[in-house]
Amino acid sequence: MDNENITTSAIMSFSEKLEEQSVAFYEKLAQKFDEQQETFLRFSKECRKNKIHLVRTYQETISDALEATFSFEALVLPKIDFESLISEEVSFSNAVKGAVAIESQASEFYAQVADQAQSLLATIPRAFKRVAGARRSRSETLLGLLG
């Protein structure tokens, strides 16, 4: 889709997909790298909760009065490559570096959405800000795994 004037619905669909892919990604990493299984499974669980939180906030906040015709201007939907990071040959170090890059892209995206959603009911930007923050802090944990 062109990235101009993106509707709230499109943002939600993208966010849902991003969190679903992240769930699968971290589950794969947990399977592959036993020693960090706990951390990766925790991230996977968080992504599942993120999705529920965002969808619930959107569905409970959206109203016919406030969101119709609203759009996010000049927002770029990041293209995130999960596939190459879960291939058999990828090393632990490369997988974690890739995960850091994903978290960075995701948190930036969510932060932009939160910023542009300021004119909507406050719960919407707040929800995106919370997920952006959670994603950002995850990068630090991931970098810590590299020693």
């Binding site: 509707t7 709230t8 619905s9 959107y58 569905q59 409970e60 906040t61 959206i62 109203s63 016919d64 009065a65 406030l66 969101e67 119709a68 015709t69 609203f70």
Partner: peptide, 13 residues
Amino acid sequence: GKTIDESRGETRR
């Protein structure tokens, strides 16, 4: 005919 965002808003209301 309304948009999906509008329909979801209507459902919520």
